[in-house]
Design a protein around this nucleic acid. Structure first.
Length: 457
DNA sequence: GTTGCCGGGCA
DNA sequence: TGCCCGGCAAC
């Protein structure tokens, strides 16, 4: 998740009274309760002095301030974002972010801290640069107990382009833009590096958290009439960059503008078994259901990145902006119902490629993979399936049993029948047909005292 | 009692 | 994952 740095800082300030000091060759984080008026360690006192200098005097002779100015100049010259977003504190955020990285590594307030994600470029730069990165030796500013970026301040930013901005859009700008300052490594902007889950690069917490809470993070494009959802920040950034901003994919001078055009959504995959979550990036109960009619409304988009990032994010988008990637492999996710026993399902049903409800996306329609056939388990987890299902007439062999299954899925699980088990089948079963003496002729399911596989009702 | 099959244990 | 079985509920 991309947490606005302001919120992050606020959080740390609030809960940890943390002191973060960017030194010449190191970065120090301490918990010294640096409250105003309190007694401070010499180091913290020094921090405070620096901060005070920065805040009060703005003396151009102050080293930290001058460096700050210099840095800001570099940033503003290479980043083309609305000026309203640039403030002194924001420029300084890189350092603070680095401190956050350290903090998360050393303390990992995993339980309390909100999910944090530093932009890949930033974290990667820190990782690679070590102390010799953009943080030059003279960088000696601190933002200990005084950092005061608050989320409301950035939310009140009115001068934004058409895509709606969320608080999450307040993100640290990419360090590569500051490349002129330090001997930055070749590529935090490298797509391959971006492909890694940036949140796990340094911040270990999001991944365990996600797993722990069964949360899956997706990134949704906020561009008007788009709403594309991808599973990686890199993918969505690339999408925005190429589709909406009209820039080259490999243009490495990312100014971070695309950060403003996507937001992050959390998908609770709790109710879906792991097997399903591995196949589907999103639970249909969280995301918008497929539209009943082919409509390019943005909110009706489906998760389209059910494959690996390089696939989902590299999908060539033949149509820009308004067209929705409606059927891009999403149906497989939508219609995949977890089954834990193969025999519990009848013959696999291949879902017709979802071009059936989207006439404009034939080229990007779901390509049948091995996951195109799916099984439905009677024990399917509580998947609230409210979208329009595949019409039985369109799915070959969608028999009565399957319709019943869909009906069950459409409603609260087992709520309608109030039965904890499947209604007993009325047809002949292996046991009845072959008898106990021919038990070896039974279907395996019958042999295992499972729902008969051969004579389904 | 018989039958279907869910849930869980075991290798 | 495949195999098996206890036990429950419908019949």
């Amino acid at each position: 998740m991309i947490l606005p740095l302001s919120r992050l800082c606020y959080y740390f300030q609030r809960h940890y009274k943390a002191t973060i000091k960017v030194g010449p060759n190191d970065l120090t984080f301490s918990y010294s309760q640096k409250l105003e008026g309190g007694s401070l360690s010499p180091e913290a006192a020094d921090d405070q002095r620096v901060v005070e200098v920065k805040r009060v005097s703005r003396d151009p002779d102050t080293r930290s301030v001058s460096l700050l100015e210099q840095k800001r100049k570099v940033v503003s010259s290479s980043i083309d974002v609305p000026h309203a977003r640039r403030s002194e504190e924001e420029v300084d955020m890189d350092k603070v972010t680095a401190a956050m990285v350290l903090t998360s590594l050393s303390t990992s307030p995993l339980v309390r801290s909100p999910p944090v994600k530093v932009s890949e470029g930033l974290s990667g730069s820190w990782k690679d640069n070590g102390s010799a990165g953009p943080f030059t030796p003279s960088s000696n500013s601190s933002s200990g107990g005084y950092w005061s970026w608050s989320a409301p301040s950035d939310q009140s930013n009115p001068s934004t382009p058409s895509p709606p901005l969320s608080a999450d859009s307040f993100k640290p700008f990419r360090v590569p833009s500051l490349g002129g300052v330090g001997p930055g490594p070749a590529g935090p902007e490298d797509p391959s590096l971006d492909e890694q889950d940036g949140s796990s690069l340094l911040f270990d917490e999001p991944i365990p958290r996600k797993r722990k809470n069964s949360m899956k993070v997706m990134f949704k494009c906020l561009w008007k009439n788009c709403g594309k959802v991808l599973s990686t920040a890199a993918g969505i950034q690339r999408h925005i960059r190429t589709i909406h901003l009209g820039r080259n994919y490999d243009s490495d001078c990312s100014d971070g503008e695309e950060d403003f055009y996507y937001t992050e959504i959390k998908l609770n995959t709790d109710s879906v078994a792991d097997g399903l979550s591995s196949l589907s990036p999103a639970s249909p109960s969280v995301l918008s259901p497929p539209p009943p009619l082919p409509s390019p409304l943005p909110s009706l988009n489906q998760p389209s990145d059910s494959h690996r990032p390089q696939q989902g994010s590299d999908v060539k988008e033949p149509h820009a902006g308004g067209t929705t990637p409606l059927s891009r492999s999403a149906p497989s996710a939508l219609y995949l119902i977890h089954t834990d026993h193969a025999y519990q399902a009848t013959a696999p049903v291949s879902i017709p490629s979802s071009s059936s409800n989207s006439n404009g996306s034939a080229s990007t329609s779901f390509t049948p993979t091995n996951s195109s056939s799916f099984s439905i388990s009677w024990q399917s987890p509580p998947v609230t399936f409210t979208g329009n299902t595949v019409s039985p007439s369109k799915s070959q062999g969608f028999g009565e049993q399957r319709s019943q299954t869909i009906a069950v899925l459409s409603s609260p699980p087992r709520a309608t029948t109030a039965l904890s088990r499947k209604v007993r089948g009325e047809g002949k079963k292996c046991r009845k047909v072959y008898g106990m003496e021919n038990r070896d002729m039974w279907c395996t399911a019958c042999r295992w005292k499972k729902a008969c596989q051969r004579f389904t009702d």
